[in-house]
Design a binder for these strands. Structure first.
Length: 420
DNA sequence: TCTGGGGTCCTAGGACCC
DNA sequence: TCTGGGGTCCTAGGACCC
């Protein structure tokens, strides 16, 4: 069933969108800034070559950007959303098997294309460029994780002409040999550190690691990642767009907010915006969370981060009701005397709007947690340096627990016991 | 000398992605 | 003066219920 997959990823997407309508930006260093012109969220290749990192705050680098002739644009999400739809629409002409993964990426199922994969990839790139003006890179491999690797190589090295195929095992390993763990999809700093702690230092180590051991130590998500590196598909193509599980509307304030009335205004307008999204997706919500935050980049100022969840007796998408609930939540957490930097609302526990009348949202069929308990006569604990074992009447055999799986409060107790 | 075995809801936070 | 705005999944623990 599973055939090769392509990951199609738009190059420097936001910058490319700006360039479609301002061709004079081509060949020049360009960055796009986040809301409030806070930090850099997209860079052209020329900007990357200047050493501009993702996410850097603009105000700290403004002078340097100016000196380097960097062109700066505020973001325009309406434009990017529209361009994204055009790109996806072109891609859908090439295969019905399409997963829109993000605003600028899609996975394509390419079963049945046989040995025409490479020419197909090139035709696809050319079509997207011609019809939308957006350059894309294509990575083709048997699994999503390897397709990500292929795409990364296609993007980094121009000699491949924007398309890379990783179809046989030796080629895949050669590609992985040039990467570090944090270059992999799903690996960031923390996981890389935990992998290193069990002797997995490179993508090839992970590929050849013992899946059972990895699962035991690091969980099922990491085991899937290891298998995907071997070419075993663990992540399927998701053709249907699933309903959202939460909807958020939040903003950082341009300057600190110190009065409750300003906070109320902001929260009311974010709630209205979230409610619009909710209705557009034909959903209703039964919980709403409102939160406020002070400026975390100013640790010397008094900090206050607070959130309150408000339960709605009947799921709704009515802006008025939601704003009322959000303001009630805000009243119980907002405090005078703090300089607030950010606020927002999150709508949770979403249901199809059509289910409201029938009350179908009310009852969840699946238990949220399964508890196992056993009363035992007496516990016999043996503490070792790295493991503790339990023997008890009521347990068929002793349980052994490794230290790294204990939460810190227990390991402290463990240390105490070892000292005795 | 002795008092079960589950369940739900809520809050909070970690870790990752784009 | 100035550091984004969304999402996902997972884990853990407390309060409370029957």
């Amino acid at each position: 069933m599973a055939g090769p997959l392509a990951l199609v990823d738009c190059n420097n997407f936001y910058v490319s969108c700006e360039r479609v309508f301002q061709p004079e930006l081509r060949g020049r260093p360009v960055v796009v800034l986040s809301n409030n012109d806070g930090c850099v969220i997209a860079r052209s290749n020329e900007s990357k070559a200047l050493g501009i990192a993702m996410g850097v705050p603009w105000h700290l680098h403004r002078d340097r950007f100016a000196a380097d002739g960097v062109i700066v644009r505020s973001s325009n999400y309406t434009l990017y959303g529209d361009m994204s739809s055009r790109v996806m629409s072109v891609l859908s002409r090439f295969t019905p098997d399409l997963e829109i993964y993000s605003i600028d990426e899609a996975f394509l199922g390419l079963q049945g294309f046989g040995n025409r994969l490479e020419s197909h990839a090139r035709a696809l790139r050319a079509a997207v460029l011609q019809w939308t003006g957006i350059p894309v890179s294509v990575g083709i491999a048997p699994t999503k994780t390897l397709a990500k690797v292929a795409n990364r190589i296609a993007k980094k090295d121009e000699k491949h002409g924007g398309a890379v195929l990783l179809l046989d095992e030796a080629v895949q390993s050669a590609a992985l040999a040039g990467l570090e763990l944090i270059d992999l999809w799903g690996v960031a700093g923390r996981l890389a550190a935990r992998l290193a702690a069990i002797g997995i230092d490179t993508p090839l180590d992970l590929k050849h690691g013992d899946p059972r051991l990895i699962r035991e130590r690091l969980g099922v998500v990491t085991m899937r990642l290891a298998l995907e590196l071997r070419g075993v598909p663990c992540l399927g193509l998701e053709r249907e767009i699933p309903d959202r599980k939460s909807i958020m509307a939040s903003r950082s304030f341009g300057r600190p907010v110190t009065t409750l009335s300003e906070l109320r205004e902001a929260v009311a307008s974010y709630t209205a915006r979230a409610a619009e999204k909710l209705r557009r997706q034909h959903l209703a919500t039964a919980h709403l969370m409102v939160f406020v935050e002070t400026n975390r980049f100013k640790p010397d100022e008094p900090q206050h981060h607070a959130a309150r969840t408000v339960h709605l007796p009947v799921a709704t998408s009515d802006s008025g009701k939601l704003i009322g609930a959000a303001l009630a939540g805000l009243a119980s957490i907002g405090r005078i005397g703090y300089r607030y930097k950010k606020a927002g609302v999150v709508l949770l526990d979403l249901h199809p709007a059509s289910a409201i009348q029938e009350g179908l949202f009310d009852k969840a069929d699946n238990p949220r947690r399964i508890t196992l308990m056993r009363t035992v006569d007496r516990l016999n604990l043996r503490f070792g340096r790295d493991t503790v074992s339990f023997a008890a009447a009521g347990l068929r055999r002793p349980w052994k627990l490794r230290r790294e799986f204990l939460s810190p409060c227990y390991t402290t107790a463990w240390d105490e016991l070892l000292r005795v």
